[in-house]
Design a protein around this nucleic acid. Structure first.
Lengths: 311, 311
DNA sequence: ACTCAATATTGATAATATCGATGAACATTC
DNA sequence: GAATGTTCATCGATATTATCAATATTGAGT
């Protein structure tokens, strides 16, 4: 039993073809075939059914595969820890950010962050919180930037900052300051289902015993803040926006913004990783860079003890 | 990099002596030395400081060792899963039971349980809940039998049964039935600190707003039910006992027992294992055997919805 | 029956884990 | 301070095994 055999099995399970799997592992088909057979013999269980059209996993093989993936990941972690210790940060890092953060936060820090790890291939995606958590658990992505808390035993959270919501009213100019409970909820437009910001805002309204009423006779499914804003402007509607999305609005646009007076509704933004994520240095630098970029921009509000935390 | 190298490092880290570690791994000292060096080279980090009198881990080595242990455990799990699939149950199983359960429950099922797995070497210990949880996490033991719930993300629980407490009064004969709130708390003796049953009983008393008063001018630290009972009898004191500890009392002793009338205070007993415990079949048979042994003995009380759950 | 595609097998070879023997470093003993 | 013992590293030889190229086998489709 050896580590290569594990890789061969994983490759074959993925590609379902001996030659292709062999190629992926940089060995010949004969080697792959022999080594997988040996592992099966040693475990005493056939992992693959070679009679099926494209080779398929046996029922038992599927169970073993799950454990093999775990073993493989832990061995990867071993290497990553070594690199961390040596101060080397190489390889590939996949960061996934929710759509109500990504377009505003990423430009603020990503470039400077990437410069610090020239050997690291950084891939950034945009996904909803649910997708991010799922993929963190399956270890398909490395780091998520979402609205915390998540409260999942498999996920570790690292608080970053609190981001206030602001009120946006198209058409007219709302007052500079507004109370949360006096929100005008007619024509309040929201993001489509699946975005945590939608849920947060609905809960915020319920908390103030405002009833959400959509007076429009049609429904628009906005998947991003940008798209939401276009809709709101085009229809004289209103909405809530996260602070970072409006901080660089041109003067003309700023007139449509109301800040909330105390207590300011806000959301908490944080980094999330799998419990077994080991590249602590990357996480630390990422946190530092984000905070360095965001702190001078965010308004200086004390959110401690405030209950209007997200979700 | 290979699996043997992992074992060599673990053995050396444990024994801190190349020859002894080599012996443990059934190889020569030269092999062990070479292979460990190779792993260190490949990782690029010295794991051991060979200049120290008995070889010592380097600071970095200590970090790597933790991950190596994880890898090793996951590979063990792979083998265990294979054996489970094949219906083979071999190897060693360590079960740890809290002292207020062990002497009464174990004789009821252990023999029959062991018979079902003739190839399994079963080791049973007695430890407090805290020790059991700690050792489950470090994977030094396999299964715990404790009073649940534990509520720990790393621990999985499996409810077994509810066990009522009874009241024991030395010296005189208490009534057959007693209400929880009319407990005579003077001279109520308890187990020493660290036993969950002690905590549970104290909470029970607080719940009924009884104040625990020890009128004796000395203090006895009882570490087991048996020792507690001897103390109680010798001093005309009283105490609460778990049902299984009194169900086979001789007639003369039974007279000192009061059962509680509804709502009966009770504790919940359950199996606990580490999240990554994979020998599901053992767990299932263990549960079956315990329930088979205990169900005919326990009184037929409906505990559903009762709030006096333990701790 | 023939052909093709996919996997298994075979025999040779290269890589490497292991061993026994020996060397080097260092502490202990007389 | 020379001798001895302990402990780990190193070396050359050997056994094991992973790998390869070539070929056989299997099964499905024509």
């Amino acid at each position: 039993m050896n580590i290569h055999q594990f890789q061969y099995v994983l490759a074959l399970a993925e590609l379902r073809h001996f030659e292709k799997a062999a190629e992926k592992c940089f060995v010949t088909q004969s080697t792959l075939s022999t080594m997988i057979s040996k592992l099966e013999d040693e475990l005493g269980i056939p992992i693959f059914d070679r009679k099926k059209k494209p080779v398929a996993l046996t029922a038992e093989g599927a169970v073993l595969l799950e454990q093999l993936k775990i073993v493989q990941r832990e061995i990867e972690s071993l290497k990553e820890i070594s690199q961390e210790i040596k101060g080397e940060v190489k390889g590939r890092l996949i960061i996934s950010v929710i759509p109500t953060i990504a377009p505003f936060l990423l430009p603020l820090f990503l470039h400077r962050f990437a410069l610090q790890f020239p050997q690291l291939q950084i891939i950034v995606r945009e996904q909803t919180t649910g997708e991010i958590i799922r993929q963190l658990k399956s270890r398909d992505i490395d780091i998520g930037i979402v609205s915390t808390p998540i409260n999942d035993a498999e996920i570790e959270e690292q608080k970053l900052y609190h981001e206030p919501f602001v009120y946006y009213q198209a058409g007219k100019e709302p007052p500079k300051r507004i109370e949360a409970h006096e929100l005008n909820l007619s024509n309040l437009a929201l993001l489509e289902e699946g975005h945590c910001m939608r849920t947060q805002i609905i809960e915020l309204c319920n908390y103030h015993e405002n009833q959400l009423v959509n007076q429009l006779n049609f429904n628009f499914q906005a998947g991003s803040i940008d798209s939401l804003l276009r809709f709101v402007r085009g229809n004289g509607a209103s909405t809530l926006l996260p602070y970072l999305s409006v901080y660089d609005f041109p003067k003309k646009e700023s007139k449509h913004i109301s800040r909330f007076s105390d207590p300011v509704p806000f959301r908490e933004i944080g980094l999330v990783v799998h419990r077994h994520f080991v590249r602590k240095r990357i996480l630390q630098v990422l946190e530092e860079e984000i905070l360095k970029a965001v702190k001078p921009i965010l308004p200086d509000i004390d959110f401690s003890g405030k209950r209007l935390s997200p979700l």
